[in-house]
Design a protein around this nucleic acid. Structure first.
Lengths: 242, 242
DNA sequence: AAACATATTGACGCACAGTCATTATTGGTG
DNA sequence: CACCAATAATGACTGTGCGTCAATATGTTT
């Protein structure tokens, strides 16, 4: 009775996993608009009705996939936050992990982009919205903790009193840089070669702008990057030898 | 013959205007997904087929509206670039105009957001893509000119050699800040009150980060804002009394 | 006025999200 | 094992809306 209920629950979870797995694949291949739930049903070898036992709408499904993406990102951030060094080095590790995510979880990264649209969220269920908020909170706190340390230690100037402002500018700039860097128009006009270098530079600019010591001109951050890679992301594939 | 052809062309243009006008209204009211071309046809009192004589697809129509938005933005930028003052004050005028656009052309601003999605562009026609690129170029050059002046005059440090990098960081940060500021999740976590203040602060942070003199701490930019408003945007409604 | 050219239409085809009556499976009971 | 709920899974069906195109209307030339 109770035993079989537990098994049922496990099977249900496994199937949701299966849906999310193939959903991500198709979403990445076709984009949100062309994601076909009949095809998804065929791929997972269940009927379309079964998908709707898990997800209320197509948006809900997409949000579910995006939350997985965000969880993965939060995991990376958490690992990066453990990096030993100055606060500025530690925030750099977060910036590094953000690019690591964009590169090694390219599919997840693209799914996240879809949620920026305003009208996307209205059809999503409350539970999935909350689940998403939870992972967003994890990301926020990984960054916020470092900023608070920087204020305490004096690495950030004393007039910086609200850590959330610094966190916001870092998130906004990073997000904006990622998006801008893949716009064909801007690539051409600004001479963007690869999508990572400008993101990391802008992170540096923002930290410098807040007066976060040691400033990028006063420290060899290339060496820090090498340490971050070696100690936190030994599998990182992308090379940012600027 | 040639006379009537000219009249035809004028009528065609007027009708395209009409489509774009109502299209913008419905797009803003319903969002891209729920924009209904049958309803649009009813609104303009032409048949749906006629819409398709002007626009190849729904995406193409939306892009047409977005290009109008961008043209309006480029106009604002051009006006702002004429502001008399230091280069840093002039780039501030651009930042001001960017927020002015987001506030007073809120509808256009929201349409622009829709284009950030990757899969949007693939169905757009070449001509409309080019038209969009043209307006984007106008925006770029308004900003770029000021940055070049700043490099020449020494307001930006001599190690800044590529103006496009500075332009990119300004655009990316501003765009990212606008998007981030309307994400409910981030509003909550970062304590965002209004959508404009954080955008302008981040623009300041980035300029400071590049070492653009006079730094925000060394100059009364609130006074500059007052001048910008008085001289360039006398009709600006939003108040940013920070 | 007739013939021709061009402009406009809206009913239709089709793809696909979401539903729900029907069918299959499971697990408990005598 | 046979029977009977209760629960799970299905896929044919419906509604919606984009995009098309044969049919119709309007304009122009001779």
């Amino acid at each position: 009775m109770s035993v079989s209920a537990i098994r049922k629950e496990r099977e249900r979870t496994a199937r949701e996993e299966l849906i999310l797995l193939h959903g991500r694949r198709l979403l990445l291949r076709d984009g949100y608009q062309n994601l076909n739930l009949d095809e998804l049903a065929r791929a997972i070898e269940y009927s379309k009705g079964t998908i709707y036992l898990h997800f209320a709408t197509k948006e809900d499904l997409t949000l579910g996939i995006a939350t997985r993406a965000l969880r993965e990102r939060a995991n990376l951030f958490q690992r990066a936050a453990l990096f030993k060094g100055s606060t500025r080095e530690r925030i750099r590790a977060i910036g590094f992990s953000c690019c690591e995510f964009a590169v090694s979880h390219r599919d997840y990264f693209h799914v996240e982009m879809m949620l920026k649209s305003v009208s996307f969220w209205e059809k999503a269920s409350t539970e999935r919205r909350q689940a998403h908020g939870l992972e967003a909170g994890r990301c926020f706190h990984s960054i916020s903790g470092i900023v608070e340390d920087a204020i305490r230690s004096g690495d950030l100037p004393s007039h910086v009193t609200r850590p959330a402002e610094v966190v916001f500018s870092l998130i906004a700039t990073t997000m904006g840089s990622h998006i801008a860097a893949i716009q064909p128009e801007l690539q051409l006009l600004c001479g963007i070669q690869d999508p990572i270098t400008p993101v990391r530079r802008n992170q540096d600019i923002v930290c410098d702008g807040w007066g976060w010591k040691p400033l990028s001109g006063d420290w060899n951050y290339a060496a820090t990057d090498a340490r971050i890679r070696a100690e936190i992301f030994p599998d990182a594939q992308w090379l940012n030898n600027s």
